[in-house]
Simulated scan of single mutants.
Amino acid sequence: MWTRELVVSAPGKVILHGEHAVVLGKVALAVALDLRTFLRLRPGAEGRLSVSLPGVGVRRSWDTPDLRALRERIAADGDESKSPSVEQLDALREFAGIAAGASAPDSLATLAFLYMCLAISAKYGDVPSVDIVVCSELPTGAGLGSSAAYAVCLAAALLMLCGAISCPLQEGESTARWTEEELTLINSWAFRGEQVIHGNPSGVDNAVGTWGGALRYQAGKITPLKRVPTLRILLTNTKVPRSTKILVAGVKEKILKFPAIMNPVLDSIDAISQECQSVLEAMPANPSAEHYPVLEEFFDINQHHLNVLGVGHPSLDRLCQVTASHSLHSKLTGAGGGGCGITLLPPDTSPLAVEAAKQDLCACGFECWETKIGAPGVTLHCCSSLSAQVLHALAQS
């Protein structure tokens, strides 16, 4: 029986450098974004497991015996190295009343929850009767790792409920984190959840959500950076929809058409990623203003490179122009073609300048958040340590 009320959180992510080049074997740097997803655990009605995701309109509840029978039916064997099979996912859709091919966030979130719950409990024992509520500061579909943050929170919560990992939060503590071995287990199960949602994810998003800080990704290998400073940024969502698949195909077509021109651009992006890694690892935890000029130059150069690759967009050009008028430096993050951009905020940036930039960006129809990168990974919280805003969001269930 679960008797405590606790909250698990995990960060989103942004790509700092290496967009598109990473698809062709170059280095990319992914950093944890201090906009987080929160999952609250609370003792529930005996013999029932409930999940509420008010942000995507999900409120479901199942009897434990029904879940146990479903687990046996889909032959969930609790092996975190195995991908979910088509037959297992079809059976889960049927059980949950989700239409074949449904790809809306509510359907995928429910499917991921059921799969992870049954597969984890197959190895470690039944999930106790709890009410689970999830809320997020991350917008969905913006390339900011919202699904991975959800999967990481689920993995940590379900593994803890089943006793596979410890409950590290001691009485009187506000937050706690798991051991490296436990984080590795959380990450492996979060990746399974990402497979349910995305099919063939890279594993970068869930790794950032698990370990936080910053990660280097190249040719399928993920390496945490040794030391990562916390940097203030302005995150801007242009709200312009884009197709990552089409943008990636466009870059490949350009490289095939102009290899002598485009390959040096990719090499330069790779060099920026590697140089930026060196700079970040040499910076103090709370860098001062003199550490920022080289990072700002990297932003400017890489933004031009990404436009050369053909993944820019007038909305992103406008974002860069607006922030430049306030002496700030920006670049797109992610697939491009719209989507999101990030702006560095050095410590000597006045609050008035930041507010003026935000107002100008919002006047363009964009959405802005003042936040940080280099945030901690998956974390366990006591409820009293959370902000009133987060507690209010978790109460909307």
Rank of each mutant, 00 (worst) to 15 (best):
S129D: 15
C162D: 06
L183S: 10
L235Y: 13
R227C: 13
Q170A: 14
T184V: 13
L161P: 03
I222R: 00
T210R: 02
C153E: 05
T238L: 12
S243N: 08
T140H: 07
L235H: 09
V208D: 00
E194D: 07
E171F: 14
L247T: 04
A148L: 07
E194V: 05
K245R: 13
K245N: 05
V127M: 10
S147K: 05
L138N: 04
P201T: 08
T230N: 06
L215I: 14
I165A: 00
E182S: 05
P128Y: 13
G209Q: 04
G209R: 04
I233E: 00
G220K: 00
S243V: 11
G213E: 05
K226V: 14
T244S: 04
K239H: 15
N200F: 12
C162E: 12
A157C: 06
N200C: 05
A190E: 06
S202Q: 02
L158H: 06
P139S: 07
A249G: 10
K245V: 13
L225K: 01
G220A: 01
E182P: 08
R177Y: 12
T236L: 13
I246T: 11
T179Q: 08
E137F: 10
R177E: 14
S136I: 07
V240N: 07
P224N: 03
G143S: 09
L169Q: 03
P224Y: 09
T184H: 06
E182N: 06
L234Q: 07
P241M: 11
P168L: 09
L169N: 03
G203P: 05
T210H: 06
R227Q: 15
V208L: 05
V204N: 00
P241T: 10
L185G: 02
P201A: 02
I222Q: 01
G250W: 13
